[in-house]
Design a protein around this nucleic acid. Structure first.
Lengths: 125, 125
DNA sequence: CTAAAACCTGACGCCAGCGTCAGAGGCAAG
DNA sequence: CTTGCCTCTGACGCTGGCGTCAGGTTTTAG
């Protein structure tokens, strides 16, 4: 392995990123459009991503599942990247955390409700 | 209190239902349109609801929060009302339950991720 | 060399749970 | 009576995360 080989990042195209992350190509393009991803371009204009982009996309999916919007995630990215935050960002992080926690509690309550219904319908066949 | 007074249901108009349940008037009309609520009508055409409608609307909100669609809720209503279900409905109930449980797990994972980020940003001020 | 597969840029479509505006009627109080 | 709030029926708008089609270029496999 030469120095230049070690220095050169291995870049992958959009299809590989999408497949490895388990999302559609369209989704990846969308993330870029929303400022969540930045891609280099090949001379012919094709997007080239660093391989750890897959990890990032999986992170996005997780945040989407938690109800964060792409805008919020974009605001969070600096924290994630640099590990450096100002007071406002930290407040936002905690706010999102609390929102998710509240959502978990809501879901748990809904779950309990459904379990009640299930219990009733099982004893009343 | 006379017999007729005891027998007569107290009916409320849409505004009261909405306010007591903490939703908009528009939302209540929407629920009716989706077959979740049935209203009597006054001679002039105004909707009249039984007072326990408020409970029902709160239940809807809980289910919406859990990610159920109004269609699903409409399919669940017979179980809820009569306490009587066929096999298909019981299967649906369990499927929804499992879906919600999975969602709770996802959210918990996202929460843990965010907590990691928060921990890092707190130690890296 | 050629055909298939992958990629590109728009741009419109979709769903669900409402928000919101328009225009008109009902209803208790002063 | 009229003022002011509540209600009615449409009907269009919005948001977000993509799906999907159109029409063209590029890369890759054989």
């Amino acid at each position: 392995m030469t120095v230049t080989e070690a220095a050169a990042e291995r870049l992958v195209r959009i299809g590989e990123v999408a497949r490895d992350a388990g999302v559609s190509v369209r989704a990846v393009r969308y993330y870029e459009q929303q400022g969540l991803l930045i891609a280099e371009r090949s001379p012919s204009g094709q997007r080239l991503y660093r391989q750890d982009t897959v990890t990032l996309v999986r992170f996005f999916q997780q945040m989407f599942a938690a109800g964060l919007t792409s805008r919020r995630i974009a605001e969070l990215l600096p924290c994630w990247d640099t590990g450096h935050t100002d007071a406002e960002q930290r407040a936002m992080l905690r706010a999102e955390r609390d929102r998710i926690q509240a959502k978990v509690d809501d879901l748990q309550a809904a779950l309990d409700r459904l379990d009640e219904v299930i219990a009733i319908t099982d004893t009343h066949p």
